[in-house]
C-alpha cells in the first residue's frame, strides 16, 4: 500500500519541487549575494557559490544605514500596534458579539465599511493629523493610527460568536460585570483568535511600507522597511551589503513564521473562511 501511494505521488512531488525552487531560489540568491565580495557580486558570468565567504557585509550594514535604530523602531512599532489592536479590537469585538445596546448593528456596519475602502482614501488626512500634532518623524506616528482596526474587530467578533455562552452567563448571574467577564472569561477562551490576529498584525506591521515612508523621513526615525526602500541602491550600490541588510531585516518575521507556522496558516485560513 505505501508503495502504491509513493508511486502515485511522485509526479505530484515533481511539480511541487519545481514550484518550491521558484519560491525559494530568489531568497537563496539573496543570501548567496550577501556573502560575496562586491567585486564578485558584479562578475559576469555570475558565480553561484561565493569564492570566499565574506561575512563582513553583515557588519557593514550597521555602518551604512542606522540599522540598529531602524530595527528598534520596527520592533516598537510592531509591538505597539499589535498590543493596541489586541486590546482595542477584542474589547469592541466582545461588545459587538455579546452585549445589547442601541445602534449596535449600525455601528458594526460602519466598522465594516472601513474594510471596503482603499487605504489611499485615509492617507492624506492621517498625514495631516500627524503633522498638526507635531508627530512627524516620531514613534507615535508609526504606531497610533495602526492600533485601531476594523479587520481585527471583525475577526475577533466572528471568533467570540463561535464560543459557547454558558460560562459567561453563569458568571453574569453571579453578578460579574461585563468588564470582568471580558477579562476573566472571554479573553482566555479567545486565545486562539487573539494569537491569529496577533500574528497577522505582527507580519503586516513589520512589513508595512507606505505609511512609515510617508510620516518618517528622517533615517533615524524610519522603520527597516522604509529605510531599505529609500536606499534601493542609488548613491549606495553595494548590493551585497543591501542583500545582507534585507535578509537581516526580514529574518525576524521569517523565524516567527517558521516557529509558529501552524498558527499562522490557520489564521490565514480562518480569515479566508470568514470572508
Amino acid at each position: 500500500m505505501p508503495e502504491r501511494v509513493a508511486r502515485r505521488t511522485w509526479p505530484v512531488h515533481a511539480v511541487l519541487v519545481v514550484g518550491a525552487l521558484v519560491m525559494v531560489a530568489p531568497l537563496v540568491w539573496e543570501f548567496l549575494t550577501s556573502v560575496k565580495s562586491f567585486g564578485e557580486s558584479v562578475r559576469v558570468p555570475p558565480t553561484i557559490l561565493p569564492g570566499t565567504w565574506d561575512w563582513s557585509n553583515y557588519t557593514k550594514v550597521f555602518h551604512s544605514i542606522p540599522f540598529g535604530e531602524q530595527l528598534l523602531n520596527t520592533v516598537l512599532m510592531t509591538a505597539g500596534r499589535t498590543a493596541g489592536q489586541l486590546l482595542l479590537c477584542s474589547m469592541a469585538a466582545y461588545a459587538f458579539a455579546r452585549l445589547a445596546f442601541p445602534g449596535r448593528d449600525v455601528i458594526f456596519m460602519l466598522f465594516l465599511s472601513v474594510l471596503m475602502v482603499p487605504s489611499q482614501l485615509f492617507l492624506i488626512p492621517q498625514y495631516q493629523i500627524m503633522q498638526e500634532l507635531g508627530w512627524l518623524n516620531s514613534l507615535q506616528a508609526l504606531i497610533v493610527p495602526g492600533v485601531f482596526s476594523a479587520f481585527g474587530t471583525f475577526l475577533l467578533r466572528q471568533f467570540f460568536l463561535s464560543l459557547p455562552k454558558d460560562l459567561e452567563e453563569a458568571a453574569g448571574l453571579d453578578g460579574a460585570n461585563p468588564l470582568r467577564i471580558y477579562w476573566h472569561i472571554m479573553l482566555p477562551l479567545a486565545r486562539p483568535g487573539l494569537v491569529a490576529l496577533g500574528i497577522l498584525t505582527v507580519l503586516w506591521s513589520w512589513n508595512d511600507l507606505m505609511w512609515p515612508l510617508v510620516v518618517n523621513n528622517d533615517p533615524e526615525q524610519m522603520t527597516l522597511s522604509a529605510g531599505l526602500a529609500t536606499l534601493k541602491g542609488e548613491h549606495f550600490t553595494d548590493y551585497p551589503v543591501l542583500m545582507a541588510g534585507s535578509l537581516l531585516a526580514t529574518l525576524p518575521v521569517i523565524v516567527v513564521f517558521i516557529v509558529m507556522q501552524r498558527r499562522v496558516l490557520e489564521g490565514i485560513a480562518f480569515t479566508g473562511s470568514k470572508g
Binding site: M23, T33, S41, A226, S246
Partner: peptide, 27 residues
C-alpha cells in the same frame, strides 16, 4: 506549505531588492 508561504512573509523591501538584482540587464 512553509516554502510556498515564505515569499508572503518576506519583507517587500527585501523582495524588491533581490528581484531588481535578478532582473538586472547586465549582471
Amino acid at each position: 506549505r512553509v516554502l510556498y508561504f515564505l515569499p508572503v512573509v518576506t519583507m517587500p523591501a527585501a523582495v524588491g531588492m533581490v528581484w531588481r538584482w535578478l532582473y538586472n540587464g547586465d549582471i
